[in-house]
């Protein structure tokens, strides 16, 4: 993965290295009203589907009831036994919070860890073929039909083969699934499918489809489904964005509807223009995603400043 800041989010960059004598708290106060207790209460409220106020009221009522019950028991029993202290719920440490943030960034295949813009997968069809909206739409349909199904089928086969021959299993899973997918796409797009050339059958070995073959650990089928869906959505967003942008710049149209009187950059329709444009879009995408990641890291560091362990 090329985006180092997403892979190692907790590693301080040269610009953000804290001096030894500098206090832990940053000068930038982002959300001073939030504390870990507030966040924990909000998390419980979200988990139970209630508002924080309802959680507070219920907690107060439970405490009052517990106090009344304790008082009653004390009146009945002359020699009260010492009540065991309720176990305080373990609060997250800073390291745990940072690890959780890193995991959430890693799992966000839509924006922060987009398979195309951040991880550099699926570049061949996007650069060479997604030169207009129609072709981008075909690639999207192919990705929707092929990506998740391939991942699930390959994982199922890998469970049988003991996770051996992964590259061949993944590639053949995609090639077998390509048969019904091609029939479906032919019924949808007809002979327009021929404009995709070699890039349609080549998708069966495209890294964005079979990237998982490089991983040694075997995931479950449910996990493959969930991650496959996430990757598919992220891929489709990137394909449509680049496809429409290239068509707009090259021909002045979007899905063959005129937007600009003339194409501003005819080179955008060529692979060279595709590389350049995708590089610029990826730079913008990385900048926004990196700023958000730094904001979240700063927030975690701020909220968990007093819990190093």
């Amino acid at each position: 993965m090329q985006n180092e800041q997403n892979r190692k989010p907790s590693k301080p960059t040269g610009r953000n290295v804290r001096k030894k004598n500098q206090p832990e708290h940053s000068q930038t106060v982002i959300i001073p009203q939030l504390s870990p207790e507030v966040l924990e209460r909000a998390r419980r409220a979200a988990a139970e589907g209630k508002t924080p106020q309802q959680i507070d009221e219920e907690a107060a009522a439970a405490a009052a009831q517990q106090a009344a019950q304790a008082a009653g028991e004390q009146a009945v029993q002359p020699k009260p036994q010492p009540q065991p202290k309720p176990q305080a719920k373990a609060r997250k440490t800073r390291a745990e919070a940072e690890a959780e943030l890193a995991q959430s960034i890693h799992d966000d295949h839509l924006w922060l860890n987009n398979p195309v813009m951040v991880r550099g997968l699926g570049l061949a069809p996007i650069v060479a073929m997604a030169s207009d909206g129609d072709r981008a739409l075909m690639l999207c349909v192919l990705s929707v039909l092929l990506l998740t199904a391939t991942r699930m089928l390959a994982v199922a086969v890998c469970h049988i083969t003991g996770n051996r021959f992964r590259p061949v299993v993944y590639a053949y899973a995609a090639a077998v699934l390509y048969i019904p997918v091609y029939i479906i796409m032919y019924n949808i797009f007809g002979t327009n499918l021929s404009i995709m050339g070699i890039y349609l059958p080549m998708m069966v070995v495209e890294p964005v489809i079979v990237k998982r073959m490089e991983a040694t650990e075997l995931e479950t089928i449910g996990e493959a489904f969930r991650k496959g869906i996430n990757n598919t959505i992220g891929l489709c967003i990137a394909i449509l964005l680049v496809g429409c942008l290239r068509e707009l710049l090259a021909y002045g149209t979007v899905f063959e509807r005129s937007v600009l009187p003339v194409g501003l950059l005819p080179l955008a329709a060529q692979p060279a223009g595709g590389f350049l444009l995708l590089g610029l879009v990826a730079a913008g995408w990385t900048a926004v995603a990196g700023a958000y990641v730094r904001y979240k890291q700063e927030e975690v560091r701020h909220l968990y400043a007093d819990r190093k362990h």
Binding site: Q2, N3, E4, M117, V118, R119, G120, L123, A272, G273, G274, F275, L276, L278, G279, L280, A282, A283, G284, T286, A287, G290
Partner: peptide
């Protein structure tokens, strides 16, 4: 913002 993947893509472009 251009380091990593974006610079590779522009270079290859």
């Amino acid at each position: 913002i251009f380091r990593g993947l974006p610079s590779y893509l522009i270079y290859i472009g």
